[in-house]
């Protein structure tokens, strides 16, 4: 599976964003993972070549961060269940167990059909929205088992599944490309602000509370 010239060009495009090329390594690994479904030896070698590093240095970085898969291909969709305290105890544990049972995989594994990777994940910075699940790293907030089963049903049926704060999911590899910093054209398109983010604003409006008026100062 050769890495295309286009991906090489995108790697160089990432390198151009920084005063020093090596800064592009973390995004580049996302990009290569997006291209190849995991970080391959070939991917490590390409990074080493472009950034003038040893493959040991590249591997050292790739194995440090949890989002890179170095041992096997990831599934079509990545399902992450937050099991840190606020999400896990409030429902995430049960959701994970239900998913694990339904998909017949345990933490970090890919379903036999290659459709799903299931992973216990750490805090997603959305504790207000617990329990949080991610599908292809998009937010699925305040989830429960039923809602999650519905999401899986739809994904299995190939139907559109829209994140609670974010776009319709597009597959894990597409998400990895977005994370790498390659424009997916969706930046302003999705509904990323929900009622929980507006909880305080709505309360303030209900109660007629505002910040002090600058004119008074």
């Amino acid at each position: 599976m050769a890495i295309s010239e286009q991906v090489r060009a995108e790697c160089r495009q990432l390198m151009d964003r920084y005063p020093q090329d090596r800064s592009a390594l973390v995004p580049m690994l996302h990009l290569l993972q997006s291209e190849q479904g995991m970080v391959t030896a070939e991917g490590l070698e390409l990074c080493a070549e472009l950034l003038d590093l040893s493959t040991a240095e590249v591997r050292a970085v790739a194995t440090f961060y949890t989002m890179y898969r170095l041992r096997s291909q990831g599934g079509e969709h990545h399902i992450g269940v937050c099991v840190n305290t606020a999400c896990g105890l409030l429902g995430g544990d049960a959701i994970f167990d239900a998913l694990s049972k339904r998909l017949s995989v345990s933490n970090g594994e890919v379903t036999a059909d290659g459709r799903f990777t299931l992973e216990r994940i750490e805090c997603q910075a959305a504790c207000t929205h617990s329990p949080v699940v991610t599908v292809d790293w998009e937010y699925f907030d305040q989830m429960d088992i039923d809602k999650m089963m519905d999401v899986i049903d739809k994904l299995e049926a190939g139907e559109e599944v829209v994140a609670t704060r974010g776009p319709a999911v597009r597959g894990w590899r597409a998400a990895e490309k977005t994370i790498a910093g390659i424009d997916d054209g969706l930046g302003y398109k999705s509904d990323a602000i929900d009622s929980l983010m507006l909880a305080g604003l709505n309360q303030a409006k209900e109660r007629g509370e505002t910040a002090p008026d600058p004119k008074d100062f």
């Binding site: 080493a48 040893s54 194995t63």
Partner: peptide, 17 residues
């Protein structure tokens, strides 16, 4: 040679060569 993995799993390792 470099550090691989992290935390309690951290270890010394090599790359492709």
């Amino acid at each position: 040679i470099d550090l691989m993995e992290r935390g309690a799993e951290q270890q010394i390792g090599i790359g492709e060569e």
